[in-house]
Simulated assay, not measured.
Amino acid sequence: MSGHSKWSTIKRKKGANDARRGKIFTRLIKEITVAARTGGGDPEGNPRLRAAIASAKAENMPKDNIARAIKKGTGEIAGEVYDEILYEGYGPGGVAVLVECMTDNRNRTVADVRHYFTKSNGNLGESGCVAWMFEKKGLILVDKETVSEEELMDHALEAGADDIIEEESEFQILTPPEDMDDVRSGLEEAGISFIEASISMIPKNTVDVTDEKVARSLLKLLENLEDHDDVQKVHANFDIDDELMEQLS
């Protein structure tokens, strides 16, 4: 879990500024649009759309924005058509990196992603080179200040969660992908709010990054990828201990 938890915590600490919030909205709008295009505009019959809407609401996205994105997906109003692409590669220190993209220009996106890997002494690999190191899971993040561990466990496990992991500032709830929506709904019914609810790629094992230079280069790679307009999510299987993280901060 370390790769996801470390990076997600870093992202949220950076996420207070308006520019980054705008990027979050852009990604959510893309996800809602593609979900509606592939599975229809009714969230009741489209779990992916239902999860995307829940994530958008968690980020306080206006209802009009959500409705407009759905209509773009169903073709009721004009909108871009995005291709979903998964890029795989190795970052500094041999860390495995997965990059989920939605793009209207494949050539532009792959060129930019390759450039970021090369610039950070990593390399973009072939399809399948690192995906086997990750497992698809439902992931729900809950702020530790909003609920006790005992209460969260009672509701989450009853709703079908596999595990709950305590991190520095959050609880991470892991679910089978097909059960994430039920667990999310169970939390909502119990009045428990969440930071994020999404299908994520969780590393099966992690690579310890202990060298400061390598760690800085790795985090810069992840940040560059996250900042790209075509990138939806970045997953990596690294672990950096708290002492080094403090130095990097």
Rank of each mutant, 00 (worst) to 15 (best):
A19M: 10
S55R: 15
P177D: 03
L139E: 05
M1V: 09
E246K: 13
E168K: 11
H235P: 04
I202S: 01
K14C: 08
W132S: 13
P203H: 07
A131K: 13
K119E: 13
K14V: 03
G79W: 06
K213E: 15
A161E: 02
K220L: 10
D242E: 15
S127C: 02
A96I: 00
I173K: 02
N60D: 10
T210V: 13
P177W: 07
T103F: 05
R20G: 04
S249F: 10
L49G: 03
D239G: 11
N224W: 15
V81G: 04
I66H: 07
E158G: 05
D162G: 04
P176I: 02
W132A: 11
T74V: 00
A51K: 12
V97K: 10
G3K: 02
D143P: 01
I195K: 12
R20H: 11
E151Q: 13
V147H: 07
G122S: 04
L174S: 00
D163P: 00
D154Q: 14
E167S: 09
L187C: 00
V183D: 07
A56P: 04
V147R: 08
G91C: 01
A96K: 11
G122W: 07
G191Q: 05
E31H: 07
D239P: 04
A58P: 03
A56F: 07
K213Q: 13
L86S: 09
S217C: 05
D229E: 15
T33S: 13
G186E: 06
G191K: 09
E88Y: 09
A16W: 15
A54N: 06
S169R: 14
L139R: 02
L248H: 04
G40S: 06
A19E: 15
D179Y: 09
W132P: 04
K23T: 11
S193D: 15
V95S: 03
M180F: 01
D163R: 10
V234I: 08
T118L: 13
I164Y: 07
W132C: 03
F134V: 03
R37Q: 12
D230M: 03
L221D: 07
Q172V: 08
L225C: 01
M1N: 13
D229P: 06
E135Y: 01
G22W: 01
D181R: 13
N60Y: 12
L86H: 06
C129Y: 10
I195T: 10
G15S: 14
E243F: 10
T118C: 01
Q172P: 03
G39E: 09
G138S: 05
A190G: 02
N107P: 00
G73S: 05
L139S: 03
F238N: 03
D18M: 12
E246F: 09
T9L: 15
G75P: 06
G15A: 15
L157T: 08
P43H: 09
K119I: 03
F117S: 02
I202A: 02
G73M: 07
A19D: 13
K57I: 12
